[in-house]
């Protein structure tokens, strides 16, 4: 992956570990290696999907990018500026460029603030706008996400789930970030509303050139909205590929298992599709299996898989895959 001005995010060999340092009585606890040496670039106006099961490290990775989590090693650059080790003033400045939206909009909004106050807060805190200018900017942001300027005086409870997610998006866009991290942004929404929010995210990207890191487990949504897909398993990336390559020719056995596990909304397709069912469940990240972390559940595993960890290697079609047998 080449360094370039166009990358809004550049991560190199990032690792985030928890626990293990002594504990209360000085005994050493187990180290949870939530993220374990990942490289990731995101280009301008690109959407990258991060896919994996609960406990695979997706949320830790997202938190690390926005600086809510400090890596034990590695480098994270947002629009060319290093996040790791930056002083708080610098960090504050960098954070403007990356914003985050979460799964449940009801939990991300202050029930006692009008949505106008909520959306305007980042602008006010950073001294970008106040008074009449602030009000105008808030109205503009509301219009951008498909709400109306006069909604500014209402409270979150007066909106439906989909409208609340629009408010959250408006707040995230207030500082005109380069990168928006969307952590399962439509999973808590009803199906019909989901489509509205996806359409909105696509339209905003076309208009503003914002990049997305889209954390999701829903592959039909990923296929619709993303340019590139990254699959994560127990703290490492196991497959990275452009969307079309990824869906036409998934290679890692875990990727194939995920794809066959997601039910297609078409009975004929769903019932005739080749199943690639996984045995067992995700091992604890405090006790990651040796060699390839996936070998305990992998139908293709052989001797070498339990001893030698496969590196991400490029394939003829451009995909990067970490597997001895794929």
């Amino acid at each position: 992956m080449s360094e370039s001005q166009e990358n809004v995010l550049e991560m190199r060999d990032v690792a985030v570990h928890f626990g293990g340092r002594g504990g209360f009585f000085g005994s050493s606890g187990a180290v949870v290696k939530a993220v374990n040496g990942v490289d990731l670039d995101i280009r301008k106006a690109e959407t990258v999907a991060l896919v994996g099961e609960s406990g695979c490290g997706k949320s830790t990775l997202s938190n690390t990018i926005v600086g809510l989590q400090t890596p034990v090693s590695g480098s994270v650059k947002i629009s060319g500026e290093e996040v790791v080790g930056a002083d708080s003033r610098k960090l504050n400045d960098i954070r403007r460029k990356v914003q985050m939206i979460f799964q449940d909009p009801a939990l991300s909004l202050d029930p006692r603030s009008t949505i106008g106050a909520t959306i305007g807060e980042p602008l006010l805190v950073r001294g970008i706008a106040r008074g009449k200018a602030l009000k105008e900017r808030v109205g503009e942001l509301l219009t951008q996400v498909g709400l109306r300027a006069e909604h500014a005086d209402r409270y979150p409870h007066q909106f439906s789930g989909g409208q609340r997610q629009r408010v959250v998006i408006a707040r995230a866009l207030a500082l005109e970030p380069d990168l928006l991290i969307c952590d399962e942004p439509v999973s808590a929404l009803d199906v019909s509303v989901r489509a509205q929010i996806l359409n909105l995210l696509v339209a905003l990207q076309k208009r503003m050139g914002v990049s997305y890191l889209f954390v999701s487990h829903d592959l039909s949504v990923v296929r619709h909205i993303c340019d590139r897909v990254v699959v994560m398993y127990l703290g490492r990336f196991v497959e990275i590929a452009e969307r079309d390559t990824f869906f036409a020719n998934p290679k890692h056995p875990y990727t194939r298992a995920l794809m066959s596990a997601v039910p297609e909304a078409d009975p004929a397709v769903q019932r005739s599709k080749q199943r690639f069912v996984l045995q067992g469940e995700l091992p604890s990240p405090a006790n990651i299996p040796s060699g390839c972390a996936f070998h305990t559940r992998c139908p293709l595993a052989t001797e070498i898989c339990s001893t030698v960890r496969p590196e991400l290697t490029p394939r003829p079609d451009g995909a990067l895959v970490a597997c001895h047998h794929a």
């Binding site: 199906v191 019909s192 989901r194 489509a195 509205q196 996806l198 359409n199 696509v202 039909s220 949504v221 296929r223 619709h224 909205i225 993303c226 969307r243 297609e264 909304a265 078409d266 397709v269």
Partner: peptide
């Protein structure tokens, strides 16, 4: 409103 295989990516879904 559910994205399907034959949908072109990043086009509007029915709402």
């Amino acid at each position: 409103s559910v994205p399907k295989l034959h949908h072109a990516p990043k086009t509007d879904l029915a709402t």
